[in-house]
C-alpha cells in the first residue's frame, strides 16, 4: 500500500546480513538518520511552513490559521486539524484516490501524537471562551517518498509550528454588549507558539533480529513490522503504534521503545538549535527552494 519497491531474494539477504553486522547499504549504522535538510518559511501564503528533505523523502508542511468556534467539550481551547495529502508526484500509485488510505492513516496518527495536554498549549489558541478560537490547519504534502514518511513529516510539522505566526487579536465590546474581534494593524505584531514539547516521531523497523531507524524503501521491504513512537525532548512517549503485517515478541518491543526514546530525545536539541539559527537570520536567510 505504501509506495513499495520490488526487492529480490538476493538483495534481501544482502540487506539482512548487512544489518546483522550494523552496516547498512548506504553505509549508515542501525540508529543513524540519513542527511536531513530543513527549511522554514517556504510558502508565503501560509502562516507557517517548512520543507524537510530526508534522503530522497521530501515533505512540505503549510499551516494556515483561521478563527473558528471552540469544540463544545473544551470551550476554552483552540484546536489543530491535520490533513495529509499523498501527491501523485511522489508515486503513480497515489494517483486519483490511491493515496487516500495512506493519507488517512498518517493524519489519524498525527491526531494521536498531539492528543495530550502538553504538546501544544491549546489554551493560548482561545480568543473568547465558547465563542472564538484559533484553528490551525496543518496540511502535509508528500512530494517524494523514499521511506520513513512518519519521521520526516513530524519534523516538518515541528518546524512549521515553530515558524507559525498567529496575528494578535483584541476583543472589543460596544455599548450594547456586542463583541467584536479586531485584528492588530501591525503585521509584525503576532503570537508565536511554544514548540518545545512538540514530539517527533521515530519509526523503528524490525529487520532480522535487529531494528533500524530511518529505513529506506528497500530496507522497509525486508522488514515485517515497525514500531512508530512519538517522543518529546524530555523522552516522554506520546504515541506508539505497531504497523505492518507482522508481529513482534514483547522483548523486542521493549528494546525498540528503549532505542526509540534514546533516538527521539536526541533529535530535538539540534532541531531547535537549527530552527532558532534560521529564525535569527531573518530576511538575510539564503533560500534554497525546491531544487536545492
Amino acid at each position: 500500500m505504501m509506495a513499495a519497491v520490488e526487492v529480490s531474494e538476493a538483495e534481501k539477504v544482502y540487506i539482512l546480513h548487512g544489518i546483522r553486522d550494523d552496516l547498512r547499504v548506504d553505509g549508515r549504522g542501525c540508529e543513524d538518520y540519513r542527511h536531513m535538510e530543513i527549511e522554514t518559511d517556504v510558502v508565503s501564503n501560509t502562516d507557517g511552513s517548512a520543507k524537510v528533505t530526508l534522503g530522497h523523502t521530501v515533505v512540505l508542511v503549510g499551516i494556515k490559521t483561521e478563527i473558528g468556534k471552540p469544540r463544545p467539550m473544551v470551550p476554552n481551547e483552540g484546536y489543530l486539524e491535520f490533513f495529509v495529502d499523498c501527491s501523485a508526484n511522489a508515486t503513480p500509485e497515489f494517483e486519483g484516490r490511491g493515496g487516500e488510505e495512506l493519507g488517512t492513516e498518517l493524519s489519524n496518527t498525527l491526531y494521536r501524537v498531539f492528543n495530550n495536554k502538553h504538546s501544544i498549549d491549546l489554551k493560548r489558541l482561545c480568543i473568547s471562551p465558547g465563542e472564538h478560537c484559533w484553528v490551525l490547519y496543518v496540511d502535509v504534502l508528500l512530494l517524494q517518498c523514499d521511506g520513513n514518511l512518519y519521521d520526516a513529516m513530524s519534523i516538518a510539522i515541528k518546524a512549521a509550528l515553530f515558524n507559525t505566526k498567529i496575528p494578535k487579536v483584541f476583543i472589543s465590546s460596544d455599548d450594547e454588549g456586542g463583541k467584536d474581534i479586531e485584528l492588530s494593524d501591525d503585521p509584525y505584531d503576532c503570537m508565536r507558539l511554544n514548540v518545545e514539547n512538540v514530539p517527533c516521531i521515530v519509526t523503528l523497523c524490525k529487520v532480522g533480529h535487529r531494528h533500524i531507524v530511518d529505513a529506506t524503501l528497500q530496507e522497509k521491504a525486508c522488514s515485517v513490522a515497525s514500531l512508530i513512537m512519538s517522543v518529546t525532548h524530555k523522552g516522554t512517549v506520546t504515541c506508539t503504534r505497531k504497523v505492518g503485517g507482522g508481529s513482534l515478541d514483547p522483548e523486542s518491543i521493549f528494546e525498540m521503545t528503549e532505542a526509540g526514546k534514546r533516538v527521539g530525545k536526541a533529535l530535538h536539541a539540534p532541531l531547535m538549535k537549527l530552527l532558532e539559527q534560521e529564525e535569527s537570520l531573518g530576511k538575510k536567510q539564503q533560500k534554497v527552494g525546491f531544487f536545492g
Binding site: V237, C239, T240, T257
Partner: peptide, 27 residues
C-alpha cells in the same frame, strides 16, 4: 497478543507516558 506464540501483533498508545510506564503497561 498471540498467547501461544508469545507475540505482540498490535500495539497502540496515546497520551503521555514515560518509557518505563509504557513497558510496564505492555506487560
Amino acid at each position: 497478543f498471540l498467547p501461544s506464540l508469545n507475540q505482540i501483533s498490535g500495539l497502540q498508545s496515546d497520551g503521555e507516558m514515560s518509557e518505563d510506564t509504557l513497558t510496564a503497561g505492555v506487560r
